[in-house]
């Protein structure tokens, strides 16, 4: 009797490859990207090209220097470049955009071991790097089309804002964050393709809403809450950055804790912080505590008594 031949695991393979997932994300970013170009003019496109080109070149150069396999074709560098560009104001000097892109790939991603090993979202790491390094250029939202502060900064100063414009996106801000509708279209594309699920975005946004109702200073004021939801990078962050596979917790429970943590942090930064925006700092803070969350939410293996497993796990 011959035994059936069994290959080594995994036995069930998903059709999803890194390349395919990244391609979906790029596709999902297109509405926001398109709206950014429409809203801010052709310079937005240049910023994007510079960012994507620099991320790809940095990855190739790093792989050549360290004699690693060049893995640009998994498109993760393109996604990083695109996300970073969408997080920059359109008036940013191009060399700063390039510097940020190189920082994202080399320092945040490759030095920690490359794709899958970075502890922090590269695009957001680079955004914070630029925000600290060039605070003036990074918060200068004056363009040909719009002048003045972002709606969130106005809200913080106690002025009123036009919520309809904020939802549509014809407001000052970074290239990709202004239009809530375009971002939501992208989010729906990713949800339908199964690239992300709602655990992190939903817990993040709901927690943030609850926080704003209690501590925002306006109580349950729909216009105020809508302005905070559609303003700033909340939608971009919640759907595209916090859900990054590498830097989110692995278990379902952990992801919900992660979302709640991000919501509270964002609320704290927006209400009590010195600047009007807090999504990017909240997410990289969250990224840093992901290992801790993972440690406390280890799933119980099938067939093992949960209480015994936890006892064994702790000792």
């Amino acid at each position: 009797m011959s035994l059936p031949k069994v290959s080594s695991n995994p036995h069930i393979r998903s059709a999803a490859t890194t390349q395919l997932i990244m391609l979906t994300v790029i596709l999902a970013l297109m509405p926001a990207f398109g709206y950014g170009i429409y809203n801010f003019g052709i310079r937005a496109l240049f910023v994007c090209i510079v960012c994507v080109a620099t991320t790809v070149i940095s990855e190739v150069v790093f792989a050549l220097i360290t004699k690693k396999k060049i893995r640009v074709d998994d498109l993760s560098a393109v996604v990083t470049g695109l996300l970073l560009a969408l997080n920059l104001p359109v008036s940013i000097p191009l060399w700063q955009a390039a510097l940020g892109s190189a920082f994202a790939i080399i320092v945040v991603k490759e030095l920690f071991g490359g794709l899958g090993k970075n502890f922090m979202n590269p695009a957001l790491g680079a955004r914070c790097f630029l925000l600290i390094s060039f605070p003036v250029a990074m918060t200068n939202f004056e363009t040909d089309c719009y002048t003045g502060a972002t709606p969130l900064a106005l809200l913080k100063a106690g002025e009123t804002v036009n919520v309809k414009n904020m939802i549509l996106g014809s407001i000052p801000g970074t290239i990709g964050e202004t239009s809530m509708i375009a971002l939501l279209i992208g989010a729906v594309i990713m949800l339908l393709c199964g690239v992300i699920d709602l655990k992190i975005p939903a817990s993040y946004i709901l927690t943030f809403l609850v926080f704003m109702i209690f501590f925002g200073g306006h109580g349950f004021d729909p216009a105020f809450l809508a302005a905070h939801l559609s303003g700033g990078g909340l939608m971009l962050g919640a759907f595209f950055m916090a859900t990054d596979y590498v830097t989110r917790p692995t278990s379902a429970k952990g992801q919900i804790i992660f979302g709640i943590f991000l919501g509270i942090l964002t609320g704290i930064f927006r209400v009590f912080g010195p600047s009007a925006e807090g999504v990017s700092y909240a997410i990289i803070f969250g990224n840093c505590i992901v290992p801790l969350i993972d440690k406390f939410t280890v799933p119980v293996p099938f067939g093992i008594n949960p209480s015994e497993f936890r006892k064994g796990g702790k000792s």
């Binding site: 060399w95 600290i132 390094s133």
Partner: peptide, 15 residues
């Protein structure tokens, strides 16, 4: 204007 301010701040020291 070409200075990368983060290097004067605490994170730059770590880098």
């Amino acid at each position: 204007e070409y200075g990368v301010t983060i290097f004067v701040l605490a994170p730059g020291a770590f880098f």
